[in-house]
Design a protein around this nucleic acid. Structure first.
Lengths: 138, 138
DNA sequence: TTACCTGCAAAGAGTTTGCAGGTAG
DNA sequence: CTACCTGCAAACTCTTTGCAGGTAA
């Protein structure tokens, strides 16, 4: 269990005021051992049920967007009605389990190197995202 | 320029009634040499401006979903406000040009082989999707 | 004090749905 | 005739925005 101070510093250091709401969201997102994959509504539910904190939706969006901009969260590309975020901001890829509708991290060792041979003049690569869809084997 | 008959047969063979609207959409989507990447609103605009046909939005959605189910279209995973489709249903990957909001096909030669080393028991791989985001180099 | 933040409600955008009327077979 | 299809508008969901009141520094 991390001390709130850690989050206060984290927020302050990136120019975000450490408000009650932001600290609460930090605790939910970053005070854990494993990567957390979530949608805004997941987060809202967790705040309400696990943390017993009612934070306005506008503030949740606001905060998540701020965290994404500061590089504390990564947005994941899945065709879904919702946007998913990942607390693991390192360069990595995902399984998407179609049966459970859940994301699973793939780390460097899980995936061979991806080589892009095509170059478009005047363009540069911003990111490479791999999504491996899996289902129950039967 | 393909004959309408081709599309009428295509539709009929998959159990879809060849209505005026569906044939018109077929002509726009499948009567071309290159892959076509589009969102519903792109399609709507093209129907209105290029084909001079006003087809109801509900019918456009309805038709595109039917075509996707029949395997005539592929849905592409991008985090975007809109859903994108691809008339190229073969196994391939994409650049997404963030500046122009346009998709570009990557063919087999453009991308090294992707090796997935992690295996989850009881699961099988359904698809592997690679999205390479690019922006203007500056 | 002052700039920034929160929360509500309303607005927006894309997509889906209900249903009356139309059309293919 | 009957099942399926179209088109309109309303409904829905997720996300963004405007703004009045609140809070950190």
């Amino acid at each position: 269990m991390k001390n709130n101070h850690v989050f206060i510093e984290k927020l302050r250091s990136s120019g975000l005021r450490p408000t009650k709401q932001r600290i609460e969201i930090c605790k939910l997102l970053f005070d854990r051992k494993d990567t957390f994959h979530f949608s805004i509504s997941d987060l809202e539910n967790n705040l309400e049920n696990l943390s017993n904190k009612k934070i306005s939706l506008a503030t949740i969006y606001n905060t998540i967007h701020a965290f994404r901009e500061k590089g504390y969260l990564k947005e994941i590309s899945i065709n879904s009605d919702k946007t998913y975020f990942d607390t693991n901001t390192s360069d990595h890829h995902h399984f998407f389990d179609e049966s459970k509708k859940k994301l699973i991290d793939l780390n460097d060792n899980d995936l061979g190197k991806i080589k892009i041979k095509k170059i478009l003049p005047g363009k540069k690569i911003k990111s490479v995202e791999v999504l491996v869809r899996i289902t129950n084997d039967k």
